[in-house]
Amino acid sequence: MLQVKAGQVEKMGLLFERYHRPLFAFFYHSSANATASEDLVQNVFYRMLKYRHTFTGEGEFRTWMYHLARNVLADAARKNKASLHHQDVADWAEKIAGGPSADGSLQQAQDLALLQRAMARLSPDQREVLVLSRLQELKYEQIAQLLNTTVGAVKVRAHRALCHLKDVYFKLENGSKVREL
């Protein structure tokens, strides 16, 4: 990124190859909308170019990247709340249940679908901290830097989010069982 900052804009391609998937996943987990997520990924890379002078090289590149990604997400959420936020969860769960990634096991596919629904019910903040720590595999130190808070606070937030997710998850699980009966 420092090379990009120094004017070698073409080096941006390297960064794209390395990070567009994690970024896409980040947006996908946050919005459950593949098309919108692609636009957001594009937006992040555009901002990287535009605001490359703000990258000091002191922190990690990934932290900076997620900083931009969070801003992009927040802007998008502000712009069209309705279309972006998990409005088609049922459709989504169905897709996963029948998708090739469910590797044969119906039970696991159901679990995943349930988890998706549970995740969708978390507040954006809670979902974000889980996505960053579990799915983007950022260290708590990095998340703390990103969210401008302490490591302890991040752990507490993640723990609470996980507990909440667990509650929601089992409630949904019970609900679906009741429906099945």
Binding site: Y46, L49, I96, L162
Partner: peptide, 30 residues
Amino acid sequence: RLWTTMGQLPVPEPSEQLRPTFYAMLADFQ
């Protein structure tokens, strides 16, 4: 179990459009 399941949450492949769109944007920017 939840944590593990979370790790298995599938992410679809970004569409074929993403890459060319990015490089077009980069070229424009340059």
